[in-house]
Computed example of a mutant assay.
Amino acid sequence: MHWDQNLLNTPYDLIEVPTKSAKDVQLFAEISSLPANLKQEVSDFVAFLKYKKKQKTAV
Rank of each mutant, 00 (worst) to 15 (best):
K39Y: 02
K50V: 10
E41G: 04
P11Y: 03
A29T: 05
N9A: 14
F45D: 11
E30P: 01
V25M: 07
I31H: 01
K53Y: 07
S43I: 08
D44Y: 10
V42K: 04
K50E: 13
A47H: 08
M1H: 10
A36Q: 11
T19C: 12
D24G: 01
Y12R: 15
P11T: 07
V25Q: 06
Q26C: 12
I15S: 01
L8W: 03
D24F: 00
N6H: 05
V25A: 03
I15G: 01
H2V: 10
F48L: 11
L7M: 14
E16L: 11
N37I: 09
L8G: 02
W3K: 14
D24L: 04
T19Y: 12
M1R: 12
A29V: 03
L8Q: 04
V46M: 14
P35Y: 01
S43Y: 08
N9R: 15
A47F: 02
N9H: 11
K54S: 06
F48S: 05
F48W: 07
Q5I: 14
K52H: 11
M1C: 10
F48V: 06
K39T: 03
L27R: 00
V25T: 07
K53V: 08
H2K: 13
A58N: 06
L38D: 05
I15V: 07
Y51D: 14
L14C: 02
V42R: 02
D13R: 09
